[in-house]
């Protein structure tokens, strides 16, 4: 049984048919990337999975249970955490407070303390800036904070929306290194990225999205070799 199974999902914004029958699976322990250009429906797919948008048709199964009817705030306790596009950190709270809110639904104080320590060893920058307001940090640091905060919920599936957006190339590499580390620690990851090159390097499998439809799906290696993908998303002629 796949950890996440999306079956023939149709999502609309008003009358606009944004997702025209998306189906994808994410197995336990994988890093799966969703690549595609602007407006292909990548973010819409993520928002549908975590309940922020309601599809008109189709089903989303998490560990075998349909989660479409669950409101978004209940998903985190089921094991799905999302790092939204543009990070969505609480700008006016400190780093520590942000992380504490990530563990909001949990009651085990000891475990929270331990996980905070884990996050700090994963992101040493955050340890240095514990008392700083999140909004005053650089984009890369905010991205780290958003990821750390999502990890505080001890998710089984982490949804990452454009983690490389607006970051310097050095930071992009650092972020993708961390994504791999997190995955090795046992967190399954669904990664939405415009930076197809980086995404396919860390991902195991990939789906290519175009105007609301999945046009290609294969292992990351095969996609990297695929002529269409190379031409359209990797900039290789």
């Amino acid at each position: 049984m796949a950890l996440l199974e999306v079956n023939d999902v149709h999502t609309y914004y008003g009358n606009i048919h944004a997702l025209k029958g998306i189906s994808l699976t994410v197995e336990e322990g994988e890093v799966v990337c969703l690549i595609g250009g602007n407006g292909a429906g990548k973010t819409t797919t993520l928002r549908t999975i975590c309940g922020l948008l309601r599809p008109r048709q189709g089903s989303v199964l998490f560990r075998g249970h349909d989660i479409i009817d669950f409101p978004p705030h209940t998903l985190i306790s089921k094991g799905i955490a999302m790092v939204p596009e543009g990070r969505g950190v609480f700008a006016k709270l400190t780093v520590t407070e942000n992380l504490e809110l990530g563990a909001y639904y949990r009651q085990d104080k000891e475990g929270i303390k331990k996980d905070m320590e884990n996050v700090f060893s994963l992101f040493p920058r955050l340890r240095e800036r514990q008392k700083q307001l999140a909004g005053t940090m650089s984009g890369g640091e905010q991205q780290m904070l958003a990821m750390g905060r999502a990890l505080m919920a001890q998710p089984r599936l982490l949804l990452l929306d454009e983690p490389s957006m607006g970051l310097a190339p050095v930071l992009v590499e650092a972020i993708f290194d961390i994504i791999q580390t997190i995955n090795k620690d046992g967190v399954t990851i669904l990664l939405v990225e415009q930076n197809a090159h980086m995404a396919l390097q860390v991902g195991h499998r990939g789906y290519v999205l175009q105007t609301g439809e999945i046009v290609l799906s294969d292992t990351a290696k095969a996609l990297q070799q695929n002529a269409t993908v190379q031409k359209a998303y990797l900039g290789i002629e």
Binding site: H73, I76, G88, L93, E97, L101, Y104, Y105
Partner: peptide, 24 residues
Amino acid sequence: SRTGRQWMALREDEDAAKAMGIDT
């Protein structure tokens, strides 16, 4: 309290609060 922190998150960013598992 926990409730106080819930309100704090709600005040700062309603969507992010939702993503944290807070029933807004």
